[in-house]
């Protein structure tokens, strides 16, 4: 087992706890809930295989589901996000970039990194809330939930990025 895998497992456990014990209990205005574990999926290196991305997404989602009594909902959404991530990332990579890199403000520039994060997170929340409410008849609350949760999570993406930027 390589050291990067061990670090990933450590981050996995830490992030799951922070997510389910703190962030899952914050519901701003009754609509917005931040899923900060998505940052983990966003920051996996460029050359992470699709299968590894899928597994990380699935396991993370399942762990969060287990604590919040929503079996399968987070798992389905995070797996889908893991699946689409490399395709989203590919639109922002161009020749002249190093072969393998960790997506971030440094490697991609702020603008590209934020749009890439936004695409992934919107996809995640769209699936999450459609599965949770299981109806698209109440389209307005659904859209409010998706938009507000995306904004809140993006805020944490930016904060996390600022911290790693300073290093």
């Amino acid at each position: 087992m390589t050291s990067s895998t061990l670090i990933n497992i450590r981050n996995f456990i830490l992030l799951t706890f922070v997510q389910v014990l703190i962030f899952s209990h914050i519901h701003l205005f009754g609509y917005a809930t931040a899923y900060i574990y998505l940052i983990f999926l966003l920051k996996l290196p460029r050359h992470t295989s699709r299968n590894a991305l899928l597994m990380w997404g699935f396991l993370f989602g399942l762990a969060v589901d287990m604590f919040s009594n929503t079996p399968g909902i987070n798992a389905a959404a995070a797996t889908a996000m893991g699946f689409a991530r490399n395709a989203f990332l590919a639109t922002f990579t161009h020749k002249g970039m190093p072969e393998d890199f960790v997506p971030g403000a440094k490697s991609l520039k702020w603008g590209s990194y934020l749009i890439y994060s936004l695409m992934c997170i919107v996809l995640f929340y769209t699936i999450l809330f459609i599965l949770e409410l299981f109806t698209i008849s109440n389209i307005v609350p659904l859209l409010i939930s998706i938009a507000s949760s995306t904004l809140l999570t993006m805020l944490f993406v930016v904060v996390a990025e600022c911290f790693s930027f300073r290093k």
């Binding site: 699709r50 899928l54 699935f58 589901d65 399968g72 389905a76 797996t79």
Partner: peptide
């Protein structure tokens, strides 16, 4: 295209969990 199959498998498991709950 094995990632497609893994994707469908994992989503399948998620939905089974969702509905059996």
């Amino acid at each position: 295209h094995n990632h497609w199959f893994l994707f469908i498998l994992l989503e399948g498991i998620s939905f089974v969990l969702l509905f059996s709950f």
